[in-house]
């Protein structure tokens, strides 16, 4: 099966996403693993975004420039990428699993009537075949998956590989023109940025982060007390925000903030990939969860299989006792 390895060069509001250079590292490995002259190509969809091509560590960049691609538009990007794929027949397309590319990786395989390989954490070329390791059920199980057919559309989670370094010299860019309908059914209008919050969770040295395991809004006071004793702030996982218990600006993860505090104490958080991508860079991670198999324990440095409602006040007391 011939065909090159493509990486969707994802960018948003003028910047390449952090995931793109990770995917380029992975893509390079796969292209080398398949051998036989397989190239790594980055695909850049946008409008006036060609300047980003110079930062892509690939053998070549295929660029489609169209006004409808100026901001994320799943309808436009799916039509453009599907046309390009049909024309050039890549072996596999690595797409970042991010909110920006999300609709595209849902639509594209359906349009091409191929399977999506979702939640991919690792990918290998084995005897000319592709094999993926995929994370299911919020990180509780993993599946090893053999992929047949081409193109394989592979949705890759953050953290699959270290980011590639910027290339020494800019890769060659090929401009491709595609026709898109003038009357797209999905139209981007504008961005709505959030009101600045009371605390900026990205600027804290200590975050006491609460998840669904905190159970009630009232119990968040237990985390507030600990955060106060440690001179930090309270952040949260998505369900806590969705319940309206804390403002959106406190959310950590894919749709929220990416944080790198000196201490991240995860209290009643299961450790779903969408949460972990926002906090895995913390210097010290302590997790408390009643479930000893919770995925959070594989990113934490220290863990306690116990009840947060008992642990939080106990730690607050222990911290205060040390200060005396």
């Amino acid at each position: 099966m011939a065909g090159n390895i493509w990486v969707l060069a994802e960018h948003w509001r003028g910047r390449l996403s952090d995931l793109t250079p990770e995917l380029l590292t992975l893509g390079r490995e796969i292209a080398d693993g398949l051998g036989a002259g397989t190239k790594l190509e980055a695909v850049l969809l946008g409008h006036g975004a060609q300047g980003l091509a110079a930062g892509l560590a690939a053998d070549g960049v295929i660029s489609i420039d169209h006004a409808a691609l100026a901001e994320p538009n799943p309808e436009a990007s799916c039509l453009a990428l599907a046309a390009l794929i049909e024309q050039q027949k890549p072996r596999a397309v690595l797409v970042p699993l991010s909110n920006v590319a999300a609709d595209l990786f849902g639509l594209l395989p359906a349009r091409l009537t191929v399977s999506l390989v979702n939640f991919c954490r690792d990918l290998r070329a084995v005897d000319g075949r592709l094999e993926a390791l995929c994370v299911l059920y919020g990180g509780k199980l993993e599946a090893t998956v053999a992929i047949s057919g081409a193109p394989a559309i592979i949705g890759v989670l953050p953290g699959s590989r270290p980011a590639s370094a910027a290339p020494a010299s800019a890769p060659p860019v090929t401009e491709v023109t595609v026709e898109l309908p003038a009357d797209l059914r999905v139209r981007f209008e504008t961005y709505v940025d959030p009101e600045p919050g009371d605390v900026d969770v990205t600027q804290q040295d200590v975050l006491v982060s609460v998840g669904r395991g905190i159970q009630t809004q009232d119990n968040i006071a237990l985390a507030e007390e600990l955060a106060e004793a440690l001179g930090g702030a309270v952040s949260a996982s998505r369900p806590v925000i969705d319940q309206g218990w804390l403002p959106l600006t406190r959310q950590v993860g894919k749709s929220g903030a990416t944080v790198k505090p000196k201490l991240y104490l995860a209290a009643g958080i299961s450790g779903a990939p969408e949460h972990v991508e926002g906090m895995k860079g913390a210097a010290l991670i302590v997790a408390v969860n009643t479930d000893p198999h919770a995925p959070i324990f594989s990113v934490a440095h220290y863990g306690y299989a116990g009840d947060v409602l008992e642990f939080l006040p106990a730690l607050t007391a222990a911290v205060k006792a040390r200060k005396k």
Binding site: W12, E71, P72, S98, N99, V100, R185, V186, R187, F188, E189, T190, Y191, V192, D193, P194, L248, T249, Q251, K254, S255, G256, A257, T258
Partner: peptide, 15 residues
Amino acid sequence: FKEYAGGTRGRYSVC
């Protein structure tokens, strides 16, 4: 309204 990172949302008009 479609969610992006950091609490930013995109406003779209959909047919």
